[in-house]
Simulated scan of single mutants.
Amino acid sequence: MARRKHRLKYIELCDVSNMEVDGGIVDPETPRGHADKGNPLFHVDSTFNPRRAGYSLLLVYELPPKNTGGGLVFADTQQA
């Protein structure tokens, strides 16, 4: 995947959102949109990297209607 412009102020932050640099939503039919489709199924945040993340942060701008999904579970694989 081609390297895209960093959207966040600090390069230490990893942007895994569905937002483009201009604030728009990623087109689901682009290569990035297709790659992102697997995220709702399951993913781990950098536990496989030699330098593991110290924190994970979730910021939500809009929640789905109640009882329609959007469930989120955190698991500490180091403790597991």
Rank of each mutant, 00 (worst) to 15 (best):
M1N: 14
M1W: 14
A2S: 12
A2R: 13
R3W: 05
K5I: 06
R7S: 06
R7Y: 03
L8F: 01
L8C: 01
Y10V: 01
Y10P: 03
C14G: 04
C14L: 05
C14F: 02
C14A: 03
C14S: 04
D15T: 00
D15Q: 00
V16W: 02
V16E: 05
V16N: 05
S17P: 00
E20N: 15
E20P: 01
E20Q: 10
V21P: 00
D22L: 04
G23C: 06
G24V: 01
V26P: 02
E29V: 05
T30P: 04
P31Q: 14
P31H: 12
R32T: 13
R32L: 15
G33P: 09
H34V: 09
H34S: 01
A35S: 13
A35Y: 13
D36N: 09
D36H: 07
G38V: 12
G38R: 11
P40Y: 07
F42H: 14
H43Y: 15
V44Q: 10
D45V: 05
D45Q: 06
S46R: 08
T47A: 08
F48D: 09
N49W: 05
R52L: 03
A53Q: 05
A53E: 04
A53N: 07
A53Y: 04
G54Y: 10
L57Y: 06
L58R: 09
L58F: 14
L59I: 14
Y61P: 03
Y61V: 02
E62D: 13
E62I: 02
L63P: 03
P64E: 11
P65Q: 13
P65R: 13
P65N: 11
K66R: 13
K66S: 11
K66P: 07
N67S: 08
T68E: 12
G69E: 09
G71R: 15
A75D: 05
D76M: 08
T77C: 11
Q78C: 04
Q79S: 15
